[in-house]
């Protein structure tokens, strides 16, 4: 791309905010009443997160990975590509992350352990709650009709935010799983900001908070005076 520095984000926006929001309405209409099933499963998912069992890691990450795979196909390929050719690349990213999450769960290395004492864990749990409950509510409070709701496990943004949260509850394997959610947060935020949507800050802040929470902390050696 020649003279790339002359391009602005708005030069890459192919659709209007109305079209983007209508896309969620059409998507929700197409998959209804899957929302009811997903809400029940999401509740169970959260229950097994805060009441962990020995097999919770496998269950939680397999479910989460499956939602990423579904969003890759059900949302990006089947809907978003109709107005955005780049969505086919988003679908590849979501499918890859979905597989990685399922593999991580299957390996037994991803065992989320919420803790009230460790602040990274508290931030992670907070992000999960944000993705499951607050993000959809804020979207509705911004004036969009409930038919355009974005739900965890069905829509990209709340699912990605909740994924960032659960990755704060696991060990080093998160470094393998974090890049794609972070990249999506930047893409989503840039898209919403360019469209003039007020909710652009949510994915941006979620990415920022997650990166801050997992940053390597170098403990200062004790000084001797």
């Amino acid at each position: 791309m020649s003279e790339w520095w002359t391009y602005r984000l708005s030069d890459f926006l192919l659709f209007s905010a109305d079209t983007y929001y209508r896309l969620f309405e059409l998507y929700n209409t197409a998959i209804w009443p899957a929302h009811i099933v997903v809400l029940v499963l999401s509740g169970l998912w959260f229950y097994f997160l805060i009441r962990p069992k020995p097999w919770s890691g496998k269950l939680l990450f397999t479910f989460l990975g499956t939602t990423w795979l579904w969003i890759a196909w059900g949302y990006h390929v089947s809907h978003f590509t109709s107005v955005n050719w780049a969505a086919s690349y988003y679908a590849i990213g979501f499918a890859l992350e979905g597989l990685l999450l399922i593999l991580a769960g299957g390996s037994g290395k991803a065992r989320p352990i919420p803790s009230n004492t460790h602040w990274t864990s508290r931030v992670g749990t907070g992000l999960i709650g944000f993705g499951l409950i607050l993000q959809p509510l804020i979207v509705l409070l911004s004036g969009r009709p409930w038919t355009q709701i974005e739900l965890f496990a069905l829509a990209p943004d709340p699912t990605v935010i909740a994924t960032l949260g659960i990755l704060l509850l696991v060990g080093r394997i998160r470094w393998l799983l974090l890049p794609i959610p972070i990249i999506w947060c930047l893409i989503s935020s840039a898209t919403l900001w360019t469209m003039g949507a007020s909710e652009f800050w949510m994915t941006l802040c979620a990415a920022g908070v997650a990166l801050f929470a997992v940053r390597p902390v170098h403990k200062k050696p004790y000084s001797v005076y």
Binding site: L13, L14, F15, S16, D18, T19, R22, L23, L26, H79, S82, V83
Partner: peptide
Amino acid sequence: SWITFNVGNDREA
């Protein structure tokens, strides 16, 4: 038709 006519499969639009 840039942006304005890119409405995908939305019949109403």
